[in-house]
Nucleic acid binder design. Structure first.
Length: 235
DNA sequence: AACTATCGCAACCGCGCGGAT
DNA sequence: GATCCGCGCGGTTGCGATAGT
């Protein structure tokens, strides 16, 4: 890249949390000049009378001050969409954000890292690949065998996951015997070796983290989840 | 009540992309 | 083609709030 100057190397520029006064100045500026053009973000601090770098101004505006931002908890629909899109796009938060009006990439990234990712891990699903951890191990072993045999690897098998919040004592007693806090009951519904259905019965640990009435259905569609009840993501 | 651990979110940092020159 | 420049992206950090002991 060609010798770009650091954006925030000027001395005397303020960092850290924005004050209400700074917010006001930025909002005033962007309301009066926002659509008019004739400026770039680097100019904004000067024009708006702020001692911030332009990058910081842009970030503050896009992540917090924009009037079309939706604040507050994510709805189940939004969570489902985030998971679906993440399965397709990976960590391309801006692309994901483009599909969720009023949500910023930073918002979604934070929500993913603090809520969704953790829950998926607790369910034994790798948030990076959207596959079960043990399934990944099996797949890697298979891939190694295939490579040894000099054959091309199989197409990626999506792992359909159905979670049922079945807290009946019998099931839990049956399940609560592993080192893991939960275990799986697997039933392949005869999906032709491709998209079978895996039923995971939740043991107490996960079940307790879900609302009492919630069930959690994860069905993988062509690439992502087609349908997903995510009651237990309501924290 | 005091202390510690954990969580959640705003903000920062560094890098790459793409348009302009 | 090389360089400059602005912007946007994704990863990470800092810190206040809250929960747990």
């Amino acid at each position: 890249m060609g010798g770009r100057k650091p954006c925030c190397d000027e001395v005397g520029l303020k960092k850290g949390p924005w004050t209400a006064e700074e917010d006001g100045k930025l909002v005033d500026f962007l309301r009066t000049r926002g659509g008019g053009g004739g400026w770039c973000w680097r100019d904004v601090p000067k024009l708006a009378g702020l001692r911030r770098c332009g990058k910081s101004c842009r970030l503050r505006w896009t992540n917090y001050l924009r009037p079309d931002l939706k604040r507050g908890l994510f709805s189940e629909d939004e969570i489902q969409l985030v998971i679906d899109l993440h399965a397709r796009l990976g960590n391309r938060w801006s692309k994901i954000a483009a599909e969720l009006p009023g949500r910023t990439d930073n918002d979604i990234k934070n929500y993913w890292n603090t809520h969704i990712k953790r829950k998926l891990i607790r369910m034994g699903i790798d948030p990076a690949t959207h596959r079960r951890f043990d399934q990944e191990i099996v797949n890697h072993e298979e891939e190694e065998k295939i490579l040894v045999n000099g054959q091309s690897p199989p197409s990626e098998t999506e792992v359909p996951v159905v979670l049922e919040n079945d807290t009946s004592a019998g099931n839990l007693n049956q399940l609560a015997n592993d080192d893991q806090p939960w275990s799986f009951l697997m039933e392949n519904d005869g999906g032709g070796g491709g998209a079978g259905e895996l039923t995971m019965l939740l043991s107490g640990d996960i079940a307790s983290s879900c609302s009492s009435s919630s069930s959690l259905w994860l069905k993988y569609g062509d690439l992502g989840y087609e349908d997903l009840e995510l009651g237990c993501f309501d924290d």
